[in-house]
Amino acid sequence: MTDEDVEVAVEERRLWLLGQLNAAATRLNVVPGSSEVVNTYDMRSAGVVARDQDRDVWLRVVTEDPDYQPACRWDGNVEANAISGVPKPEVVRWDDWTSTTDYRAGTRLRGEVMTLANGETISADGVLYTDPHLPDQWWSDLRDGLTALAAHPAPHDDPVDAIGYTIRNTETQFGVTLDRAVFVDVVFVTSHADLHWGNLTGPELTILDWESWRRAPAGYDAATLYCHSFAQPQIADRIRETFADVLDTKSGNVSLLAASVRYLAIVGEGGDFDAFVGQLRELGENVLKQL
């Protein structure tokens, strides 16, 4: 496929999503505003500010994609409404339907109307490249929010097999075989599981994108955010300091290892983490010494 073919395919997908976003507006009785439509990098969803009677809301449409399962749950955003004490959007109402267009006919779609997040997304990419100069209150709110999230009853199932995934990728990336007995005393808590700078707003904190929330080792959210901060060492240090009480535990070390191998696994695909191989390997090696 040539670059021109890719551009044509992306544009076709964008226009189809735009049509589905408008369909969602009709089904959910909101009026899209004049702001720019935001597409995710993978063109799996689209969103825009809309008007719901007397307030602004966020209107989103997402298309089902088996490649994102089981990590990305269809009902993740809606089910996250049950989580309290965390600054996040709430899904006000939603609707599912099946595409009847020639393009992707039969594809399941969901439209969601959500409360509008405070602040602006901190980074267009998940990785942080410039210091956002976040106030102390933001860090305090993040700490409190993740503490409240961890206190929410953790799901019993583990569809991604977090420990198995970490064992397999540790062997692949470091040539070290870990026995499951190493993880017997790891504490699992409710986690966002995809915490990066593209899912955080500032200077007032909102945590976005709840499709992937699930149980994970305590400290996993702080560990993933830490890995997305290597380009700003002072921010990475702030994360280690803010969450030292959990990251310096056995569960926290497992979380750091899990995050390390997660992102090492995608090195070489042309993404942001290609530039951070050294930091990821050093992180993983240091944790393995302690385990």
Rank of each mutant, 00 (worst) to 15 (best):
28 L>R: 06
173 Q>H: 13
44 R>K: 03
159 P>A: 12
242 T>A: 08
248 D>H: 05
188 F>R: 12
138 W>L: 03
147 T>D: 08
116 L>M: 09
234 Q>M: 02
33 G>C: 09
283 L>F: 06
286 N>K: 09
202 G>S: 07
157 D>C: 01
252 G>N: 07
149 L>D: 07
57 V>Y: 05
174 F>A: 08
284 G>Q: 09
18 L>I: 02
225 L>Q: 02
251 S>L: 08
249 T>S: 15
77 N>C: 13
47 G>T: 11
181 A>C: 06
7 E>I: 11
224 T>W: 00
241 E>F: 12
243 F>R: 11
100 T>R: 13
77 N>E: 15
195 L>N: 06
70 P>T: 03
96 D>L: 04
86 V>F: 05
39 N>V: 03
58 W>F: 13
282 E>H: 13
124 A>M: 14
89 P>S: 07
61 V>C: 05
157 D>T: 14
84 S>I: 02
7 E>F: 07
26 T>Q: 14
25 A>I: 10
48 V>T: 06
283 L>T: 13
156 H>K: 02
184 V>K: 15
2 T>F: 04
235 I>S: 08
170 T>M: 04
143 R>G: 13
65 D>A: 14
126 G>C: 05
277 V>A: 14
283 L>S: 11
267 V>S: 07
230 F>C: 04
73 R>M: 03
43 M>N: 11
255 S>W: 04
229 S>A: 04
258 A>T: 09
280 L>F: 04
209 D>R: 02
261 V>K: 13
183 F>K: 12
79 E>H: 06
213 W>P: 07
214 R>P: 00
83 I>V: 14
105 A>R: 07
231 A>H: 06
228 H>M: 00
44 R>T: 12
34 S>Q: 12
